[in-house]
Amino acid sequence: MGYQDIKYAVSDAVCLLAQDTTPASFAKYCPRYIDGILVTVELLLLSSFIGFFIGALVAVGRVSGGPSVRSLAWAWSYVFRGTPLLVQLWIVYFGLGSLGEEQLGVLWPFFKSGWAVGLAVLTINTSAYIAEILRGGLATLPPGQYEAAVSCGMSRGQAMRRILLPQAIRVAWPAYGNELILLMKGSALVSTITVMDLMGQTRSVFARGYAMETYAYSAVLYLLLALFLTLLLKMVERRLRVGGYP
């Protein structure tokens, strides 16, 4: 049984449970909504995870790199935060993708897939915001900490990894939570590049009957997802606080 089959099985099981408890107009298309949610969640988990590491790298480059690294890190944040996500998605999918297989060569399998392009663009986009958030967090730390770490014999990288970044993350956590919710909402735009996420499925179902309920169900599902994320973030926040700042 492949990964895809497991996802379908999950969504069928959920819909079996939901069959009698949900309105008929939802139950009829239930597997489509749930299939869509799973794609949305999948994109969200992967992009927030990878995006976090890229963002941390960019933030560190911004505060402690050489001049060229600094300006590169600055440009990364500036360009990806200064242009709309939808434009970024379309530039990569419709723009770069139009170069076709001959010109893109080994990169073609990536550009061929709407899902891969969507994931990459969401990751890069969120990394730019995360970098900015972490940079703000790093700026709140007293410079003495870094000096103390180095004087204990830590290397610059060790000081960053062990002393500064963990604290910056703690300070920046609430802002990171906001960004995660925004990322979830932004992920709906991948439906414009043929990805069948929750929004893509919603639009397909809507096209079959033009019933406003379709949008309402989708909105409720997104709200539930946002609620779930918020609770999760709160839990992590509580753990981060243990033994640390008040």
Binding site: F94, G97, S98, G100, E101, W108, K112, G114, T194
Partner: peptide, 8 residues
């Protein structure tokens, strides 16, 4: 049609 042409 553009995607068909591109081979997607």
């Amino acid at each position: 049609f553009a995607d068909l042409e591109a081979g997607r």
